[in-house]
Each structure stands twice: as C-alpha cells, then as structure tokens.
Amino acid sequence: MTPAVLLLGYALLMSTAGSWALRRARWPHRSPRLGVAAWQAASLSALTATGLAGFVLLLPGSPLSVVAARAAHACVAAFDAAYAAPGGSTAGALVGAVLVGAVARCGVLLGHDLWAGRRERGRQRRMLMLVARPAGALDALVLDHEAVAVYCLPGRGGKVVFTTAALSALGTRERRAVLAHELAHLRQHHHLVVAAARALRRGFPGVPLLRAAETEIAVLVEMVADDVSARRGGRHSVASALRALHTFSSPHQPVEGQATGVATGQTARSALVPRLHHLLSPAQPARAAVLGARSVVIAASLILPVVLAVTPAAAAAQTGLCPVPAAPQLLPHR
C-alpha cells in the first residue's frame, strides 16, 4: 500500500476509533493532565498524518523529490516509485494540495483566533481598568455588579476578576480556592490549549474526534486548575465554591439537577458535575506502570505518522536498486 493511503487510514482510524476509545475511557477525568495530553496527541497525530499524506502525494516528480532522494541517498526513480500515488501523479498531487491546504488552514485559523483574542482582551482590559478596583486581600479585581461571575483575562499581566455578587456568594476559603483556580489557568496558559483545540475543530468541521477534543479539553483544563487549587486549599473549598456559585445563579436548579440538565438543554455543556465528581470522589492514583504505559501510547501516536511517511524513503535507500525509467518510445518517421 502506498504511504499516502496508510497515512490517511491512520488519520481516519484516529478520528473514529481513537475518539471513541478516549471518550469511553474513564481515566482522562481521573488524571486530567494526562487526559489533555491524550486528546491533544490524538488530534495532533490525525492532523500530522493528514498533512504528511498530502505532502507525500505532492512528492513524486517534484523538485523536492530530487532533493529528498539525494538526502536519503536513494535513486530518484526508486524514490518516486515508493511514493507513487494510486490514482496517477496528477490526481495525487491535486489531492495532496487539498490536504496540505486544509492542514495549513488550521494554522491560519489559530493565528487569527490568537490575534483576535489578544485584541479583544486588550479592549476589555482597558474598560475593566476604568471601573474595577483591587480586591483588598486577594490578588484580584472587583467589578461592582449583581451578576455572578468570576473569570480571568489571560495574556501579559493577566488579571482575575470577581463581581461583587460572586464575592458575596463565597466565603474566605472559597474565594481563595477560586483565585488559585484562575491563577492556575493564567500560569499554565490554558487559553492557548483551548484556542488550539477550537482552531482544529473549525479547520476540519464535522470530524468527531476534533469536536470531542474541543469539548473534553475545555472540561479537563478546568479539572487541572481545580486540582492545583485543591492542593493548596483543599478539595472541599473548591467544591463548595462551585456549589455556591451554581446555587446562587440558578437557585431553582439543584446541583443534582445538572445530571438531567442535558434533557432541558440548558446546562448541557456544563462541566459542573464531572468537576464535582473529580474533586469529591478522588480515584486511587493510577500505578506508575499504568501512567507510563499511557504516556508511551500517547508519544507513539505522535511518532507513528512520521514513521509511516519516512519508511518508504528508508526502504528505497536501503535496496539501492534503481529501476531504469522506461525509454521513450521513438516511432520511426514514415
């Protein structure tokens, strides 16, 4: 089978079976940091495989192929034969260009999102600085408003903001827990993780893996930040802050009602229940061997597309054979 087909097969497998397996697994919610890595690796490896498939389809007959063949100490004809597209080189190159273009578009989307996000944050920060005041003992800003909200503005000189309503819904320990959670977002640049997942999903709309990755990563980074906060001030402080803010904003909907919230559609996307579950029923820490094995699989999923792409070149170099190109048929003039 040609490398391009293998690579596309890998991307397809990753975005269907890989996505299915990750969504079914319970461990990502137990070790959210590794969970984020797993979703990122799955997305990135599918993307790399797609990009490399496009690249190898563009190779045969291109000037790049000569350079690459020389670098691999292979004969150019053998090299081109190894990467020959199944449907002929023109069709192959066309498909290749589309694939490479689609992958490059993800980069463009991400660049645009980051730029727009930065500009939007700058604008909001300027407005914020006109009306917010320091929160006294907390390293945060307070906005006088009766809506309950706590958020952070990432980027340089990141800020954590509480509304007065949020402050009054929380006790001292809970305020500290929420602040620690938001500071963890800022320190670990979670906004970039979220933005990257969003750019991939928009770059390849309708791919289940990328849709699930965006949703899951958004939940998992919250859990990562919860864990950081829990290590400082205790799991119960974070959990009771979550409950307090939720109760305050939806007084008629108990936390337990969140589980059925999917039916009403109102809170379908909420991470509240999984977060509380993660905080309050901490699982036995996974054994080092298990964590190690998961890390190896994650790393392997990233390396495999590159191996698939490079193997034919290595094989072509190793055989050292050079197929003689078919001599052009010279028809004698009549």
């Binding site: 809506a147 958020y151 938001e182 802050a241 991470a271």
Partner: peptide, 17 residues
C-alpha cells in the same frame, strides 16, 4: 468559548446573561 476569557464556572453565565 473562544479562549479570550476563562470563566470559573461557565454554566452560571447563561442564566446571568
């Protein structure tokens, strides 16, 4: 969910909004 801001609990934003 653009990643411009990060909310402590985004579920509370809908009723508040």
């Amino acid at each position: 969910r653009t990643g411009t801001l990060m909310h402590f609990l985004d579920a509370i934003s809908a009723p508040e909004l």
